[in-house]
Write a protein that binds this DNA or RNA. Structure first.
Lengths: 245, 245
DNA sequence: CGCGAGCTTGATGCCGATCAATGCATGTGG
DNA sequence: CCACATGCATTGATCGGCATCAAGCTCGCG
């Protein structure tokens, strides 16, 4: 059903982890410059993915991991009967494609929510290199483990939180990650629709919209379509921790 | 808050992956006998965990992975405000502890639901060995990736299925895994309470109970407390795929 | 300017949570 | 052996949060 969709590929151009401003967020975290040079040898190309296009789709052969260099992605899985679920949103410095390692096929779609660029990391070469560089090996393991832990957090959210708590947790997570990337965290532009937020949070888009309106009424947020300003981050935090209940 | 709880530890005794009847399900899958000997060098001890005790708890230092040898476990995470969520059930041949790699601390509790034994796999030694044995390295990566994919499946379940579908999916998954281990799959004894099933599925225990009763009325299951007999596996499958809606 | 995608808001209904009572198996002590 | 406690499961009655259905609204764009 998911016919492999042609993805626009710009002419590959040379990139270097060692000179990338994301190196402290991304795969090269904590590596020496010699180690990074080795990594540069295998992370040789970038790929541009226009807004709305898929970087990969469920069912396609897995060959590489991808590091988001610029832009924003969602990943989503779907069941046979057509229901689908957004499993995550990825921003600069985050890895895509870990799902494909287990079966050598991707198990989800990765779709760009704005014009984006990724670094292509051929996985078998990465495995080879990580047998030589134990720092790289360890970091790869940590990244995969953290993805598992993140997923557990989402399960907790989906299994036990009510609508407003879910949205609050989502916003806190987003602002947190933006702050790590040098943004203020109190002002943000959502790159996804209400429906995509809802899919991620296990809610319908109307419920997401109502929750936004509620937060605005309560003076916690200022909401103008996709432009969000966080007025009371503490209140958001209280919502998540349930202290406010 | 989670004080490290003493876990009963039997005197370690020698074990061997190479002679383990789970080797085709577990970490040694697909390895040669020389490779397995190397693995045996580091997987040197077992540990017994009585029913109700924790193998590890959130916050404890991470040192090892554990392979379930006999018995049955649940893993659960909890939020600051005390809500908790069962994130998985593990049976023979499955690995526990992957969550701890990312931060060197466990992020969930692993609790035995019956008297159990695990093989202790010191993680740093496993990393060392997997730098030598690419088959082992690759298999470890596959195991972690599959855990991520499994988690995505649970998200889909929690985010978009209704109560009976969730229970049906859960039962199919259980019987599937039991069949892999040589059991019939049409008859099973649940090792967990209705409440634990509910936590995993994002439902209250009463809802789980009602769903069981409904399946019994419909002739899909025979339910006697924790003894379940699957009378109509196809109907269960239809429920999950939504064809029945 | 008008169209359409996405967002907001209201009215209604249903699924599953909640509250409560009872049943059933196991274990313990008199 | 029975009396009783305890933990778990079942079942019923009621309630509430979110889904659903249905209008409008906003904004960007051809």
């Amino acid at each position: 059903m998911n016919a492999p969709q042609p993805v626009i590929r710009l002419e590959p151009f040379k990139v270097a982890c060692s000179s990338c401003n994301l190196r402290e967020l991304c795969l090269p975290l904590g590596m020496s410059s010699e180690q990074m040079d080795r990594l540069d040898d295998i992370v040789a190309t970038r790929r541009a993915v226009p807004r709305g296009e898929a970087l990969f789709r469920a069912g396609e052969a897995f060959t590489s991991l991808y590091a988001v260099r610029t832009g924003f992605f969602k990943t989503c899985v779907s069941s046979e009967d057509g229901r689908d679920q957004v499993t995550g949103f990825q921003m600069a410095g985050e890895l895509l494609g870990l799902d494909g390692i287990g079966t050598d096929r991707h198990t989800c779609d990765a779709v760009a929510l704005e014009d984006s660029q990724v670094c292509v990391i051929p996985f078998h070469q990465l495995e080879d290199l990580s047998r030589e560089l134990s720092d790289l090996q360890r970091h790869l393991h940590k990244i995969m483990s953290r993805e598992i832990v993140r997923d557990h957090g989402v399960m907790l959210l989906l299994g036990s939180m009510r609508a407003e708590e879910r949205l609050a947790a989502f916003l806190l997570n987003l602002t947190q990650r933006l702050r790590t990337r040098g943004f203020s965290g109190s002002e943000l532009i959502l790159r996804m629709t209400r429906e995509e937020i809802g899919s991620y949070l296990g809610l319908k888009l109307e419920t997401v919209s109502r929750a936004f309106s509620k937060f605005q009424e309560d003076g916690i947020l200022e909401v103008k379509q996709r432009h969000i300003r966080v007025l009371d981050a503490e209140a958001l935090g209280r919502l998540v921790n349930g202290t406010a209940c």
